[in-house]
Nucleic acid binder design. Sequence first.
DNA 1: ATGTAC
Length: 470
Amino acid sequence: MELVAQGPYRFGIERHGPMRVPGVVFASRELLRDARQSLEQVANVATLPGIVGASYAMPDIHWGYGFPIGGVAATDVAAGGVVSPGGVGFDISCGVRLLAADCDAQQLAAALPDVMDDLDRVIPRGAGPGGVWHPRGEGELERILEGGARYAVERGYGEERDLTRCEDGGAVADADVSQVSARARERGLGQVGSLGSANHFLEVQQVAQVRDAAAAEAFGIREGQVCVMIHCGSRGLGHQICTDHVRAMDQAMARYGITVPDRQLACTPVDSPEGRAYLGAMAAAANYGRANRQLLAHAARQVFRRAAGARLTLVYDVSHNLAKIETHQVDGDRRRLCVHRKGATRAFPPGHPELPPDLREFGQPVLIPGTMGTASYVLVGVAGGDAFFSTCHGAGRVMSRHRAARAVTGAELRDRLERAGTAVRPLSLRGLAEEAPEAYKDVDAVVAASEGAGLCRGVARLVPLGVVKG
DNA sequence: ATGTAC
């Protein structure tokens, strides 16, 4: 794949073959080496009907289902632009929630082992069923799919202020539960309030460094402070919705005269029965994901209150796997676009009307989960960035699970982390080994490249004190 | 990511 350097952190893929727009990869030269194999997917996405601007890739790009993870693509709704479930991914609404405690790491030190033991007991995780809340039948599940974190708060699992610090106020209005299959509902019913497995985690962290004092203060974080970061998604429900709608679109595509270079890019126009059906089901999964993180946050709050007498306040909750209908400036006019962000985080700039009033002058908080034993970040959206106000989402995998598990044993990794001062509460040692930090890119380099590319600005760097893993 | 395949 031919790449043209367009800046220190920006590389272009010129249009070739059926590409409708160019590709743009934001990365340092070093990160680009890990991205090579995924560039074909960036070019494939550029062939989608209605795509505008470019097919973008973030510095943490890696191989995904159809679209690369770390990909951003926007299509023009009025011009026959498509929506593709592969552009969101199987874990619809996977995202990150950060809570800040009213204590510093030093103050928590004595209680930390108790906090970790309690979290170990109360946080459901791993594959399969289990959750902190069991909805009373499908009726209540539907309330979650329509109301998201808002419904969880209504039922007493949180406080009203949580919703102002949650993307979309805790719920999107366009969920269509009739497009959520019986099988998806069945899988979702038993997993409300659960982490899942793989790279999902709940971490107790410490703010190691503040890089933007004014933004940090507005977000409610300060150096030395204890935080809780929750990274999880919509579990089997989102997975099943993706499966169902990929199949439906794969079968319907030909009727719209759409051909794609990879069947995993199955798509139909946003403005089609199949497109609307997917977006309605996706919105339901998005709400499920927010409710999931709301319930886990509630469980963590109870643990912190009981074991440490500490209170947790929500900093922000944002997804990095969603498609959204947004209005953007394209070639001088305002256009309604379907913005796919898959392993990419929305990063609204200062002044954006969708931001809560107390954050508006600073920009949208962006939460970047690192890997065990490495840092996580709080960033903020900036004006003038490319890629429809999007930035990176995490470290990005470079080693397969299998290779990671061969490179290190779970017991070795656990001992290494504990020696480095990070308490570890894994569900399985095999799962722990698969998530070894060396299986990922350097999150510090990913964040530096994202900042260098003008996509965001650093606010704070957090380091782990304890990690709860599936 | 995922009752790690229909």
